[in-house]
Design a protein around this nucleic acid. Structure first.
Lengths: 113, 113
DNA sequence: CAGCATCCCACGGGATACTG
DNA sequence: CAGTATCCCGTGGGATGCTG
C-alpha cells in the first residue's frame, strides 16, 4: 500500500479502513493484540521477522490513531503493555475475515499439492 | 504493504490473504468487481485516481494468481472484461468486512464533528 | 526491557507520452 | 478502447549499533 496515498480516494468505500491496516505488519499486530494485551517483547516473539524499528513505528501510529493504548508500568525494569481500545476492537471483524480466508487458501494449497 | 516481504512470515495467520490484497488499490478493484464483471475503462471510472499503469499491473497480478479472469472480446473496438473467479469470490467476506468498518468509521467521524 | 538513531535500498506508484 | 514505455520519486521497511 502503500506509500504516498495510502488513502487513495475519499470516495472509495474501503479507504477509511485500509488507511489503518494498510501497513505490511499492521494486520498481524492487531491479530496478536486481539487475544489480549501484550508487551513489546511478546509482540516481537509473536512476529519474529519484524524489526524493532518497524514494530515501534506501527505501534506508535496505531496509538496516535486511537486503535491501541500504550501503558507504561514502572517497575525494576521498563515494561510497556499494548492493548486495543474500543475503536481498535472494531477492526477485529476484518482481521478475523482475513484469518479465515488465509486458512482456506492454505487448505486449498495443501489439497492442490 | 509493503514492498519486499509482502508475505512477512509463513507462520503469520494473515499473510496468505494479505499477500493478495496488500496492494494499495487491490481491495478497491475487488470491491468493484464484486458487483459483476467490468471493463477496463469502467474500472478506471470507478477508481478515478488510479493510473492506467498501476491498474493494469494489479489486474495482471490478480489474473496470474487466479483471482480474476481477463476476457478479450473481439469487436469493432478492443474490449476486455474482468470478472472474479471462484477463488476471487472467496475474498469477498474480507472486502465486505473492510467496507463495513469503513462505514462505521465514517459515521464515527461525522458524530465526532 | 523497550526502544531510538542512522544508513540504505527496493518497490509501489505517479506522470506523461505513445500504440494496436 | 486498452493498454505499453519511460522516467522519476517517496516511503516502508531492513540492518546494525547504541541507550535509559
Amino acid at each position: 500500500m502503500s506509500h504516498k496515498n495510502r488513502t487513495p480516494h475519499p470516495m472509495c468505500p474501503l479507504s477509511d479502513c485500509m488507511a489503518f491496516i494498510g501497513g505490511a505488519w499492521t494486520p498481524n499486530i492487531l491479530w496478536h493484540l486481539a487475544q489480549g494485551p501484550r508487551r513489546f517483547s511478546e509482540l516481537r516473539a509473536d512476529i519474529p521477522l519484524v524489526s524493532a524499528k518497524v514494530l515501534t513505528q506501527r505501534l506508535r501510529e496505531l496509538e496516535e490513531r486511537g486503535i491501541l493504548l500504550r501503558i507504561v508500568s514502572q517497575g525494576t525494569a521498563a515494561s510497556v503493555e499494548y492493548r486495543l481500545t474500543e475503536l481498535g476492537l472494531e477492526f477485529l471483524p476484518v482481521i478475523q475475515a482475513i484469518a479465515q480466508v488465509s486458512l482456506r487458501l492454505k487448505r486449498r494449497a495443501i489439497a492442490a499439492a
